[in-house]
Amino acid sequence: MADIIGSILVVDDEPQIRRFLRAGLSVHGYALSEVASGEEALRVIPRDQPDLVVLDLGLPDMDGMEVLRRLREWSQVPVIVLSVRSQEREKVRALEAGADDYVSKPFGMAEFVARIRSALRRRLRETAPEPVYTVGKLKIDLARRMVTRDGQQVRLSPKEYQLLRLLALHAGKVVTHRQLLTEIWGPAYGEHVQYLRVFVRKLRSRLEADPNRPDYLVTELGVGYRLVAPDQFHESA
């Protein structure tokens, strides 16, 4: 077995799910602990201090969202939420309550491991941001406030840059409409998704080869936008 590279707490009431996660993740070098309820999770996390929490939204004793909110009152541990497809609208609430990512069941193990790595790395980056973010042909220099594509400098308006910077800081992760609007325009604009759409359209027309089929600035339907991480990047033909 590989060396332990991190500890993960799985919060799920389905024993079969816990079992396959344990088997699947341990192969990749993660030490797993498991609980079956929200109460238990909130009791165990301060004691065990896991590196990451996998939280099922459909827990029997407590809404997964409630667990997330209570956890976020005192802990910044990365949380990946598990949901099912019919709970699409729950994702936004989970992200806004402080989840780092969500994965819909069913999911493949390779994809899941990539999400875990990405969340762990992001947490590192957020505490000590790298000055230059590179994905594909796109380079965002946060220190010099400069964006280049294919070595060519891209001119952006201040708001466009702010938007791109925010997405780059959370690269690989979906940032919800409300989070972007609140951060850039202020809390009063939390519902003005239209603003965001227009700026995303402008950004895409400057960054993407085909703005209708974006490679970098991806829409997560009904949730928000994501600047793809290097390991998520597939350039379209």
Binding site: I17, F20, G24, V84, K105, P106, F107
Partner: peptide, 14 residues
């Protein structure tokens, strides 16, 4: 129906 399928798919991908 979906939980067992999720487990099967997840295990198979592992």
């Amino acid at each position: 129906l979906q939980t067992p399928l999720a487990v099967i798919i997840g295990s198979a991908t592992s």
